[in-house]
Design a binder for these strands. Structure first.
Lengths: 212, 212
DNA sequence: GACGACATACCAACCGGTCGGTATGGTCAC
DNA sequence: GTGACCATACCGACCGGTTGGTATGTCGTC
């Protein structure tokens, strides 16, 4: 099912995937043409349709490609070091906030951008985007679930719904950043989200979170 | 500056604006062609370019058209009845949640959808979307500012940033609803947002909010 | 010599936009 | 009151460029 699981990093396929990620984050799926993608990747149209049967299937592949990239990024992030699961959640948010640097298109989420355009017309792409967002949310959900246990919270909400809410805030923050043309609004929104999580757990204040 | 301030409701211009709002919310800006818009509106291409110099200017006009429509909707909403500004904010959120009904494209925000695609390529549209979102946020901001005064909160955040955060959550909720294909996630996110606002003001619990 | 990885040339459909034209209704001199 | 004049609203054939996609060819490697 999955095409070329181990595509060579210098190959046309990978270059196309990278080009698609960048271009779609900048201008969206529909406005990005196959020709432009080929030009960006330094590849011909023949190579494009050799690796992907259609533009849409490139988008599906790009969503997983993007997921893999961010999975790697978040797996290596420092917030996992913390023994306290609530600290991990809070530090995750700090990490997300720190990522809000440089051009808007470079910290934005491919899946969130694409799904807005294609959710009604390209079900396979929509599904790939859902999987991308949901997969990432699931990693955060695990820490949230641990925090609920640790702090013996009786929550009228589930770990899943909070994890999803966190992703919603981030996606919305991206939209506002795009509208306003700067990342400041997005940072402020992440601050609000972090404050919410703290209030939710109502943890007694400590001077410093302890590492493991 | 503003073209045809009082366009007749049955006229081609208004029909085009309505068609654009619906079509763009369904499939995005780039994927919606001028021909399709004309067909939806039951109008010819000649009429289109008689009223709008370009597709882009239709999009700008559609953003204000959409803003006016929602302005009317929210102005008539029941949450304004409440004397307590915090109640107004909370009931605003209830109202937003209640709006999450029917097909996803029908409760979604035109500005948020469009700005994702065009923020880098069509500055005028981006600006119109920003104005649409910002204008609506400003109405909520007024109530938040009153609530801060009333409850003598010393907030490390501004009324503006909270108003914007609320819009971010809603925009993000729309994205998740599109990805998952149902409004349930969006409702859950609004619940989290409402809980956050309550926690922020830490109001002593009352049995029932009083009307004016 | 077969096969995968590309390149080149090409196509029909569709895109946003133009343009010459018509239908309608209001204004005003006579 | 009527005909000249004109602005606005709208029509639809048409244009050149771009679109996603295809057909066929070349070349290096096993």
């Amino acid at each position: 099912m999955q095409p070329q699981p181990n595509a060579p990093p210098g190959g046309a396929r990978t270059k196309l995937l990278d080009a698609a990620t960048a271009a779609i984050r900048e201008k969206g799926y529909a406005a990005t043409s196959v020709d432009e993608l080929c030009a960006r990747a330094g590849v011909t149209k023949g190579a494009f349709f050799h690796h992907f049967p259609s533009k849409g299937s490139l988008a599906v592949a790009a969503a997983s490609h993007f997921s893999e990239g961010s999975e790697t990024l978040f797996a290596a992030a420092p917030y996992h070091q913390f023994a306290d699961p609530l600290d991990r959640v809070l530090r995750y948010l700090d990490f997300r906030k720190a990522l809000l640097r440089g051009p808007v298109a470079e910290f934005t989420c491919l899946a969130g951008t694409m799904v807005q355009e294609v959710y009604g017309t390209h079900p396979e792409i929509r599904h790939a985007c859902d999987a991308s967002i949901g997969g990432h949310a699931a990693t955060v959900e695990a820490d949230i679930a641990d925090a609920i246990k640790r702090y013996r919270i009786r929550a009228p909400w589930t770990a899943e719904s909070l994890a999803l809410h966190m992703q919603a805030v981030l996606q919305g923050a991206f939209i506002l950043a795009k509208a306003k043309g700067n990342a400041g609004v997005a940072e402020a929104s992440v601050d609000h989200l972090r404050r919410y999580v703290e209030l939710l757990f109502a943890r007694p204040k400590t001077k410093r979170a302890k590492k493991r």
